[in-house]
Design a protein around this nucleic acid. Structure first.
Lengths: 361, 361
DNA sequence: CTGTTAGCGCTTTCAG
DNA sequence: CTGAAAGCGCTAACAG
């Protein structure tokens, strides 16, 4: 506004303007202890006058600290991932860190590119890739870049070599879903699973099946899905058909909310009463779960907490403060009971909508 | 995996390993024309052997190009912004650009910090801030950083000095909403607006009011809101009360989908039939609009297109290819008619759910 | 307390 | 075609 410093000023300009060396300018600007008050003031004044803004790229080249962390996420950029990003962003902001985002758009070799593109721009990496296994990560992670894997294959088969891990305990969640459905009086359960080979999908399917096996005589009927809405619709149609054929399923656990919503709307349209005829439980507890009618019972973790915890781990890895745990840390999702499964209103979680609002406060 | 290059290799290591100078190594690695085939091969081989990954920070310091662009967005990190990010990310990826995210968490001075934190790390800036006016931006934008303002105050009061602008035509959208509601036979309309001073909110309110004034004898009843779900709930309660008092409102246009959803669910719970007694239209066409029951009629633009267009403008500004337009480019939102306002099923937009799925393909 | 001297890792004239 | 040298903008010893 004042004087139009067309070309952006560098620290040399500031130093010259204040008649000191760049070293002193740097010290003054960064609030180092040993700078004479007078010098400091002149430097600050010069900086203001020149509208000086430090060049962070240069700074990080020299300090070897970028104060930003890279986030690599899968192509399926759905509701769930948006929420995770929000949680991470919130936590990052509290620590004065920036987020460098990178979608691995489909192709696997692009993932490698995406990861490499982070080198020299971030202090650490957060990778969310339920498909990527330890070997893949080992092959593509730039050595020496601290990394935490969010909910990857590490969740079950052990930690990808040397990388910290954190995730949502899908097995615990699925088990809770099973117990809840049984408690609601369901006796014939179905599961709409995620893609085979996807760690989250496999975990949830296994645990659900196992828990039900311990509680009910009839085994779980499993439908294949891909975490997309259409999968849920397809499964619902098959379930309606099965009902006609005498196999009366009365409870469904879908591996994520989107499938559950597709499933639920199709059932309702087909004249099935939810939760009376069939109770439905989803997973992730994305915001939509609260908006659909009936409200969708789901399992989810506090995203803000997930974000904080993930960054804690990453920062620890960066500062080498703590040796990385051999096994990933798992957050237990909590069950939010809404109308889709509450056969008795008393069972509903109180204030089911409040979580969304307070989440990032 | 092969040899454990514990410390990350630099281009010097590669050069030494290939027995050439760093200059040649650099040329070979970047595919410059004048490098002897043999030299090139040896360099490439060395790079592979050492598992060399270029340090992008250093590269951009030297080339003055970072290949990444900064995105600054408001604290209200809702559904709409998530969608915008997705559109931008998609477009950025197509151009080989990375996104550096930065929420301006509340406080205004933090925004300034957020913006300054971009200096030297990005080639350009995309700012989404319906609250920030031109003067504010002029004061805080690091001079010389190409910027495009997404849907800011520029939408109505002219371009913030020297910055390109793009946005969604809220006035056109609001007018379309008005015409649609009238066409559905509504005669007493209400509007739940966003915060005063918010450019988007003001635009939508003005245009809706004006359009209705030209079509209907009764002026629009306006309710204050803040783009949050609770505002919609509050407005709905007031509307139900007004109905009791004889003021029979039969159509509502909410300034965003979240308020519309809060509004709609409250009305339904109060026994009002939607769309029969009251038709409702939202704005943004976020994914949830498709999932709620009844489906919410809304106005939205193709996010992928918005992302592409925004980046086009930014890239143009960066390369100085085109002089920046004096007036912001406005995308006209299209009306997606769903059950919340379709008093006759024939009026519904066909395949109302397909947009969400194909959006980023 | 302050200035000088080296770099961070990479690209790029400028001479060979 | 290739190497030496000079930076990009900033910080960090190391002497004064």
């Amino acid at each position: 506004m004042q004087d139009a410093a067309m070309a952006t000023a560098t620290i040399r300009d500031v130093a010259r303007h204040a008649a000191v060396s760049v070293a002193s300018a740097s010290r003054a600007l960064n609030g180092h202890a040993s700078v004479a008050p007078g010098t400091r003031d002149r430097v600050i004044a010069a900086a203001t006058a020149l509208d000086y803004v430090p060049h962070l790229g240069a700074r990080s080249l020299s300090t070897r600290r970028s104060n930003s962390i890279g986030v690599v996420l899968p192509d399926l950029f759905g509701e769930f991932f948006s929420e995770v990003i929000r949680g991470l962003d919130f936590a990052a902001h509290r620590r004065g860190l920036q987020l460098l985002l990178s979608n691995m758009h489909g192709a696997t070799d692009e993932t490698a590119t995406a990861i490499r593109a982070m080198r020299g721009r971030v202090d650490g990496l957060i990778i969310m890739s339920p498909e990527a296994d330890g070997a893949f990560l080992d092959r593509h992670l730039p050595l020496g870049l601290p990394t935490v894997v969010l909910n990857g294959r590490g969740g079950t088969t052990g930690q990808p070599g040397g990388h910290a891990g954190i995730g949502i305990d899908g097995r615990a969640g699925a088990a809770a879903a099973a117990r809840h459905l049984v408690a609601q009086g369901c006796t014939r359960l179905a599961h709409v699973r995620g893609p085979h080979g996807n760690a989250d999908a496999d975990d949830r399917a296994d645990a659900f099946r196992a828990t039900v096996a311990a509680l009910l005589p009839t085994p779980v009927r499993v439908f294949d899905g891909d975490f997309g809405e259409q999968s849920g619709i397809d499964a619902a149609e098959a379930i309606v058909a099965a009902r006609g054929g005498g196999e009366v399923i009365d409870g469904i656990f879908c591996a994520n909310d989107i499938m559950a919503i597709g499933c639920m709307s199709t059932l309702v349209r087909a004249g099935v009463s939810v939760p009376h005829d069939i109770a439905i439980v989803g997973f992730d507890d994305v915001p939509v779960a609260h908006y659909v009618t009936p409200g969708l019972t789901s399992l989810g973790v506090d995203m803000a907490a997930l974000g904080e915890r993930t960054l804690d781990l990453l920062v620890a890895a960066i500062t080498q403060a703590t040796p990385i745990a051999a096994t990933p840390e798992l957050l237990i999702p909590s069950l939010v009971v809404r109308a889709s499964s509450a056969r008795r209103p008393e069972d509903m979680t109180t204030h089911p909508g409040h979580r969304e609002k307070g989440r990032l406060k």
